[in-house]
Design a protein around this nucleic acid. Structure first.
Lengths: 147, 147
DNA sequence: GATTAATCTACTAATTTGATGGACTAAATA
DNA sequence: TATTTAGTCCATCAAATTAGTAGATTAATC
């Protein structure tokens, strides 16, 4: 389940596709429009900034805007920043692999094999969908992407 | 991320494929073999029993065994029992749908559309894989199932 | 009726999640 | 350069969830 943090982040990013370095959007504005506690959103945006997803300007006329083109911002990356690995088990994570403590033979662990499939399917969708892709989506489901 | 509860449940179920009504397996035995706190496992098995996944016998010669054939036990069902809906957002859950509070138009919510894809892909794998299927899996990935 | 083993009730501890308050820093501008 | 604006940093907090424990009870077998 996605945390509120990640969901707020995605909501904010959708809004921020309308921002530019010349006309950034205020935290307060985003918070109000999306019904997100301002202080909470503040921490989220800062986190995204530290990972290069966003940039910001201080002082009058300041605010937030995208740190790179929406084509280069993958949903998977955003969710990992806020919620950690996509994998349902640490032993199938690509970005934060950790061996199961008592798992004697990982290669034949039945549970692991299924969870690996789940992780791959999830990652394929989320890493294969950029912010730009998402903005283009309509009510009709699309065909599965290749990569 | 799968909870320990769900992971323990799956581990126990793998072991329980070896049990029969005539020779059930003890909670204590399962707990020791899998390194699961006994009392914790107790609650998990009871929960699975209440949902028809397991059956049990009390007294000497008692223990747990599968409540239905392993072909009829879907991974998705087990995980839902222990961890709740598979969906990353309540608004894309088939089994526990809940509208987002401030989402004005669900049909065009970009986030929802992507999360719907994730839920569908996850459910396809987990509801399409029975305990029997899982036991058959080897290190080689299989082709995606139809349903 | 003694033993075995699951069941039920009720906690408790630890961790994570969601959120808040206030001081501090950098940029713009009057 | 003083003031205002708006992001940054730090510390803390409450609620919820997750993980685990304790002890009494019930049902089956010998």
């Amino acid at each position: 389940m996605l945390s509120k943090k990640a969901k707020y982040a995605l909501q904010a990013l959708v809004r921020l596709t309308k921002a530019t370095p010349q006309s950034p959007i205020l935290i307060a504005e985003l918070a109000e429009q999306e019904g997100i506690p301002k202080k909470f959103l503040e921490a989220i945006l800062l986190d995204l900034k530290k990972h290069g997803i966003l940039q910001s300007k201080k002082g009058k006329g300041g605010g937030y805007f995208l740190g790179k083109p929406p084509e280069a911002i993958a949903m998977g990356q955003v969710i990992r920043i806020l919620d950690g690995p996509l994998a349902p088990l640490p032993c199938v994570s690509q970005t934060a692999y950790m061996k199961c403590l008592e798992c004697r033979d990982e290669k034949t662990c039945h549970i692991r094999i299924v969870m690996q499939e789940v992780r791959d399917a999830t990652a394929q969708i989320l890493d294969g969908t950029s912010l730009a892709d998402m903005m283009k989506l309509g009510p009709q489901p699309r065909r599965r992407r290749k990569r």
